[in-house]
Write a protein that binds this DNA or RNA. Structure first.
Lengths: 351, 351
DNA sequence: CAACTGATTTAGATCGATCTAAATCGTCGC
DNA sequence: GCGACGATTTAGATCGATCTAAATCAGTTG
């Protein structure tokens, strides 16, 4: 059997200690780079470790020391590029701290999320970075705090009693609306989709407040489907009927990409007949043609922030809960343009 | 201290056993759903576990039983949507088996990859799914086999002595070239980029063979930059100069997206003046306008395949190495069209 | 030279489960 | 009523590191 072979010839700290004629305890100190051991012993032990091909056994260490150098990351969706960039940021920070990431995907389902959190706990992760699934109860987070499991909320939050790294969505929305308003647009719609969670609500509220502040209709909010192909088909919602708009602010870049495709199919020229502003500014935004004006939310930086919050908390568990709210930044590109009369309207009326 | 509190009030199997008036061993059997325990004892122990809020300690179990229900996944790049979809597939299968994924990012650097593999080994993963960084030596994989660490190569391979889940790139290239040739194109270029690895080589060879089989020039292979914005700027390579092409097969959809943007900037109409075929068919391909013809490689299915290979090997370590090579499939959309004389050429000449 | 440093080193208990080998129990056949 | 047998249950060793508290050692000091 392989596993037997593996077990038999595994080199343990005891083997190392014996070969180096020191005690297990000393060998352990060497591994942990304790300053207590003398330079010669250290060298001797290290040489033996090299020679025997010793492999550190985290599992044993974890059991005794009650830390695993492991953190859990729970995100609702792997394939959205936004979350991927977030993950890359988290990974960078956690990796640099010598820890590893256990990644799970909740699919935005609370039941599943609960199972996964239990599993992480059983695996003994030192902490968790969680983007709570939509409709997550506050009690869940409170339960985890009760477990003494360090937790950082990212992008979405269900309680203030716990660290949070996210985005100032309201400010982002204001920038988007102000930009379009300054270009002369008055019929501005908000296209959104997806499950309802704090980030959703903050964007909607942000849009409404910004519109209101400009004296524009804050209720021009329209739901579009989830699948990108279906979003494209829904583009007509904004160009036909009584509620015709000349510009749309999108919930995120996925919506923007879908609408962009749909408007293309309708023969409408974005950046001329119609203005489009995305949200998040994922890499695709600059690759689109016409290039997409979008509110950058810097997911990778948010991920790094979340990672740092967690590391800080591991170092000092009694810190008061902190918030890291990043200011987004509007990137103006080709998809938004000066309002030039209702060319779109005329086109429609003549048809 | 929190950690002390945590340690103190942690309920262990021994606590459960005592409360249920059984031995630690019996309680352990209950957890593992052994058929050896009687129905009543099982019910009693489970009730107590519930009541005390017992949490299973994987760490302790792992130490004794020498398995961790954990697997390592090493991929070269998190932000490429292709790898994300792959990861989603792996995650689904591994998760369904009750195991979790430890994810790390090699950045396509061999040195970093080596560090990460060591780290995974220290963490005691039960197996590894590896997409080898470019220029990975065969000896690395052999070393891991020597460690008795079950390994599956995915998408790229450096040895045949080890499981592999990947794509029949040659077949994909043949479909792309045949498609364009049948539309009447003769000046077909291959646009590629990125580090050299088995998947790279197989695509290049596949393109050349397919061109040769059609009696077309197999050497029309052109390198483009890595960044998508830079790819766009390089689009002129295909439309100007002596080596003007009427169609391009792209190394992957990222290149296709970049070239699409660049051709747009040059005022060239894709699907009319010029044909473009992508590779991989990530979700973006169908969202592009004009819709991108692309060779689907089904990354999510490949991920699932890799996961299954690994699970099988964990179950039967002595299985002979297996290969799972998925046939790609051309999805014809708007970006490729019948060759209609050199309208592009004429346009250029008149300029 | 005994007592007292500070710097190293160490024996042995410990973390919380699993595994082995043996004990216990009820029942059945003779 | 005794040994046997299948079904349950269990005591105790074990995995491989870390932690505690104490031992050892080389210099100093009074």
């Amino acid at each position: 059997m392989l596993s037997e072979g593996r077990k038999k010839n595994r080199v343990t700290l005891l083997d190392v200690a014996r070969h180096a004629s020191v005690s297990r305890a000393t060998a352990s100190l060497v591994i942990r780079k304790s300053p207590l051991v003398s330079t010669e012993t250290r060298a001797k032990v290290e040489a033996v470790m090299q020679e025997l091909g010793y492999v550190y056994n985290m599992g044993a260490a974890r059991l005794r020391a009650d830390r695993s150098l492991t953190i859990g990351v729970v995100i609702p969706n792997l394939v959205n590029p936004f979350f991927t960039e977030l993950l890359a940021g988290i990974d960078r920070v956690i990796d640099a701290a010598g820890m590893v990431v256990i990644l799970v995907n909740s699919g935005d389902l609370v039941a599943r999320q609960e199972t996964l959190l239990t599993r992480m706990r059983e695996h003994g992760v030192d902490g968790i970075i969680l983007c709570p699934a939509a409709e997550t109860e506050m009690s869940l987070v409170e339960k985890m705090v009760e477990w003494d499991l360090p937790l950082v909320q990212v992008l979405r939050r269900v309680t203030d009693d716990c660290d949070y790294a996210g985005v100032d969505y309201a400010f982002g929305m204001r920038q988007a609306v102000d930009h379009l308003a300054e270009l002369g647009h008055r019929d501005i719609a908000f296209a959104l989709h997806g499950p309802v969670h704090s980030a959703y609500q903050e964007r909607v509220d942000g849009f409404r407040d910004a519109m209101q502040a400009r004296g524009l209709d804050p209720e021009n909010v329209i739901r579009v489907p989830h699948q990108i192909a279906a979003i494209a088909e829904a583009a007509g919602l904004f160009t036909k009927g009584s509620r015709r708009s000349s510009a749309v602010v999108c919930f995120n870049d996925v919506v923007a990409l879908g609408l962009s495709a749909g408007l293309y199919d309708l023969g409408i020229s974005i950046g001329r007949d119609f203005s489009l502003v995305g949200f998040d500014d994922v890499a695709d935004a600059e690759a689109m043609r016409p290039r997409l004006t979008s509110v950058a939310t810097f997911p990778e930086a948010i991920g790094e922030g979340a990672g740092k919050l967690l590391l800080d908390r591991l170092a000092q568990p009694d810190l008061a809960p902190r918030k890291l709210v990043k200011a987004p930044q509007l990137h103006i590109r080709q998809s938004s343009a000066i309002w030039r009369g209702s060319s779109l309207g005329r086109q429609q009326e003549s048809g």
